[in-house]
Design a protein around this nucleic acid. Structure first.
Length: 309
DNA sequence: AAGACGAAAGTGGTTGA
DNA sequence: TCAACAACTTTCGTCTT
């Protein structure tokens, strides 16, 4: 059986605690979390017979997504007594076995690589485990349906991640996915649309409010500013200012306004950068917000306060 | 000098015939 | 399949602080 970690890299202790529920390996001596988010992904053993499988398997249904054949595959000539065969037929058996192995492991190998990539991108983007798992599921389904053919593995991984993010309402922009995966935005969008359509995954349009916390923390804005921004968003939605617009632009504008009101002014440039839109877009949304929601008063008030201080 | 604002032209994607 | 279209971007000049 393969081992994840044998020694704590910090203190060298071999006294490690495997918390399988939480998917963590913790050093009992120094408390260092050596591994986290590790369960279920990229199986680290291979099942050669059911007995071994039973011993090693430590998860139920979800394993289907990281293990394509559930140990149901067979191997050619595994049990045969090859020594009784002539050299010629023995060679034939070996060849068959090789081919069978190749075919049956093609998907598996693809998955292994892809899930490693997926994991890398997910951790780069600091995505929650649920999203990671969801995207693994999506990717596996895509592989099984042969949707990866003709597309690069990486782009499908990125597409699956993007879809999973949307479904879990922790949206990342295409730009961020693109930066993390090194795949072009266009390409990610294309595979994303293709995969979700082929798999019949419903996609709810992303909600601008979902972006607020992340943008706000990138701009180091206070919690009050955040909730004000969300309040503004809600009002904007009631005025139907949000439909048809890019959610990031609206989120950015709302954040910009609420920062102004709370005297935590950020430049349009700064907000635009973290939101991945241009200043112009923020300005347009900002203008609409002011007109429709009558926020001028609040801003003027905030400005007076600023002068007073 | 830097930020905010607005106009105009360009880009990529969606939609509807 | 193609053209019209809306949203967004890029670029640039002007105004404000």
């Amino acid at each position: 059986m393969a081992e994840y970690v044998k020694k704590c890299p910090e203190c060298g202790s071999i006294n490690l605690f495997w918390n399988k529920e939480k998917g963590e390996v913790i050093c009992k001596d120094c408390g260092l979390v050596i591994e986290e988010k590790m369960v279920d992904f990229g199986q680290e053993w291979r099942e050669f017979d059911s007995e071994e499988g039973d011993k090693l398997r430590r998860a139920g249904a979800p394993m289907t997504y990281t293990q394509y054949d559930q140990g149901l595959g067979t191997e050619v000539g595994k049990m045969a007594d090859l020594s009784k065969l002539g050299a010629k037929s023995r060679n034939k058996f070996f060849r068959l076995r090789k081919w069978q192995y190749r075919i049956s492991t093609a998907i598996e190998r693809n998955l292994k690589l892809a899930l490693a990539e997926l994991k890398r991108v997910a951790s780069y983007l600091k995505l929650p485990r649920s999203v990671e798992e969801e995207s693994a599921r999506i990717y596996t389904m895509a592989v099984q349906r042969g949707l990866v053919r003709g597309r690069s593995m990486e782009s499908v991984v990125a597409g699956a991640l993007y879809a999973a993010c949307r479904r879990h309402e922790v949206p990342r922009t295409l730009d961020e996915l693109s930066e993390a995966s090194g795949i072009e935005k266009k390409e990610i969008g294309r595979t994303y649309r293709f995969v979700t359509r082929e798999l019949g995954i419903s996609i709810l349009p992303s909600n601008p409010a979902d972006y607020i916390p992340r943008f706000a923390s990138a701009l180091k804005l206070t919690a009050e500013t955040q909730s004000k921004a969300i309040e503004i968003l809600e009002r904007a939605q009631r005025e139907e200012l949000t439909s048809g617009r890019g959610p990031t632009g609206i989120a950015a504008a709302a954040l910009y306004v609420s920062a102004l009101i709370h005297g935590e002014k950020r430049t349009q440039r700064e907000v635009a950068d973290v939101a991945g839109v241009t200043e112009v877009t923020i300005r347009n949304r900002y203008k609409e917000l002011l007109e429709q929601l009558k926020l001028e008063k609040e801003i003027r008030k905030a400005k007076k306060k600023l002068v007073a201080v």
